[in-house]
Design a protein around this nucleic acid. Structure first.
Lengths: 70, 70
DNA sequence: TACTTATGTAAATATATCTTTACATGTAAA
DNA sequence: TTTACATGTAAAGATATATTTACATAAGTA
């Protein structure tokens, strides 16, 4: 079973940005950021592309696939 | 308004792969491939990452954001 | 203590993504 | 013409993604 892993929280903290700031910058809700950081669900492709642009990092620094048991 | 543009059909045809072949390789339905190629909806992030891996191209060759009127 | 800020979380709701089944069209080959 | 193959499409249903509103906690500070 394949899962998407994200490193949004680490990168956000490295840069000293709050969830609130991110939510405002990206025009989404803070709860969406929080849910994604805490792996409640994956962002849509559109939001993922915006996140890549926002942090200006190559995609593999933010997201990658992991093969899991079950 | 932001839209996700994809170049899956072009790259698939360049490589001489059918929708049916892709669907089998990626373990999804042919209708999903077709719908994405014809912009009925965007792939999930998980499927987008699998597509990048499948074609072995940088993400910007497959997907990018376009700012649109309305 | 009281106040503020950042974060985690929950429920209800709306919309998006994907599957299954099915039918249609176009093209190329026998 | 008939057959096979690739593609487009539609409806119903399941699950995922995202928003809104609201409440909670922890840490830092006045």
């Amino acid at each position: 079973m394949t899962k998407v892993i994200n490193h949004i929280k680490e990168i956000r903290l490295q840069r000293g940005i709050t969830q609130i700031q991110m939510a405002e910058d990206l025009q989404i809700t803070r709860q969406t950021i929080n849910a994604i950081e805490n792996n409640k669900y994956n962002p849509s492709l559109e939001l993922a592309l915006k996140l890549i642009k926002y942090f200006d990092v190559p995609i593999e620094k933010l997201f990658y696939l992991r093969e899991d048991e079950k």
